[in-house]
Amino acid sequence: MIMTLLSWSILVAQGLLGLAMLCAALRILRGPRAQDRVLGLDTLYVNAAMLLLVFGIRTGSTVYFEAALVIALLGFVATAALAKFLMRGEIIE
């Protein structure tokens, strides 16, 4: 009984996170300005890391943790570089 509750809640969490990624993707598509798109991309990265953690709980393996860590790191670097680019037009000064 409790286990079915847990597996259902994992499914629901995955659905909610998928919807969240859809919202972020819509913001990337809609814009209207470059900074809005970068903000959407940052949110997409964080949601993807969370989705991977939920996958880890679903399969019971800790392999997904490393993927989530790498995605979170890449998201930080990408957003920082894009923000620098928006400000100066180049990334490395």
């Binding site: 809640s9 994992i10 629901v12 969490a13 995955q14 909610l16 996170l17 919807l19 969240a20 919202c23 964080v46 949601n47 969370m50 939920v54 709980i57």
Partner: peptide, 10 residues
């Protein structure tokens, strides 16, 4: 915790 976290993200 999963539902709360995913809900807040959404």
């Amino acid at each position: 915790l999963l539902i709360v976290g995913a809900g807040l993200a959404l």
